[in-house]
Computed example of a mutant assay.
Amino acid sequence: MTIPYKTIIIDDEPPARDRLLKLLGHFPDTFHVIAEAKNGREAKQKIEALRPDLIFLDIEMPGLTGFELLAALETIPVVIFCTAYDQYSLKAFETNGIDYLVKPVRLERLEKTIKKLKSLDKQFSSQNFSNLLKEISKQKEVKKMTSITVKKAEKLVFIKLEDVSHFEASEKYVTVHTKNEQHLSEQSLVQLEQKLPTNFLRVHRAVIINTDYVKDVQKYFNSRFIITLNNQKMSNITTGRSYNEAIKVWMGV
């Protein structure tokens, strides 16, 4: 009889953790969930204490991303990434016994992951994976952008980041809000977040703000905040609960 993988689910969103836990319950011979973690720091403590065989790991988490968590571990278990963004180029990890699932995770896709685990788990190399993480880190250490290019009619227009109050995602495009104008960008928030300077902060899955434009911050229900930006519209941004830790770090509270 095959011993199931001791498994930890790591995701900052409770509904995502609950869904995955329910799906894994269909495969008790493969997965034995021993813990859950709601952020990277908590996950690091539980991984080091419980020594799981396998983790389901969200990539975008406030405070400590999935990649940063893995880079901080001495021993890396088998990893299955869970991401809401299929733009991530994670196929290189598959040869190391690693897979990735696009949220919302579906039962039939999880079945493919199990087949992959059975055929590839012996090939997993913690050292090879560490090398891949280093390559990702190098790619992220590119020079931070100072302007963004947008299309306006048939022209390409360069907008200085100091003039951008916030970025807001909707469907296929991201709206670039300046002091008194709006433009569309084909870059995703994930792509922008990797290149923007440190004064830009992700406060919601669909919003990145320029903290230099923050006029005030008010507490809101369900442990959220309303951030007012000092642009022409005096935009009010309601934050997402999963970004609280990063917001509090920025505010110094």
Rank of each mutant, 00 (worst) to 15 (best):
K172N: 08
L101G: 10
F81C: 05
D99Y: 15
K112L: 09
N96Y: 06
V78I: 15
H177F: 06
S188M: 04
Y100Q: 04
L132H: 11
H166P: 07
R106G: 09
T198H: 14
N210G: 02
V105N: 03
K115C: 07
S125D: 03
H204P: 15
K103I: 15
K122T: 05
L110T: 13
S130Y: 13
T83W: 09
P104Y: 02
I98P: 00
T149G: 04
V157L: 09
I208T: 08
I159Q: 00
I98D: 01
I136Y: 08
F158P: 00
L192H: 13
S188C: 05
T178L: 03
E111S: 11
Q127R: 03
L101K: 06
A153F: 03
R202S: 08
F129N: 01
H166K: 09
S126G: 02
N180H: 04
L133A: 12
N128L: 08
E171R: 06
A169F: 11
E168P: 03
M145K: 12
H183Y: 07
L107Y: 10
A84E: 06
I159P: 01
S185F: 02
F81Q: 12
R106V: 07
V142T: 15
L90T: 03
N96A: 09
Q123P: 00
Q194Y: 08
L161P: 08
L107T: 15
T149R: 07
Q139G: 05
T83H: 09
F200E: 08
F81E: 14
E171Y: 02
S130R: 15
N180S: 10
L196A: 12
Y173C: 01
Q127D: 04
K118M: 14
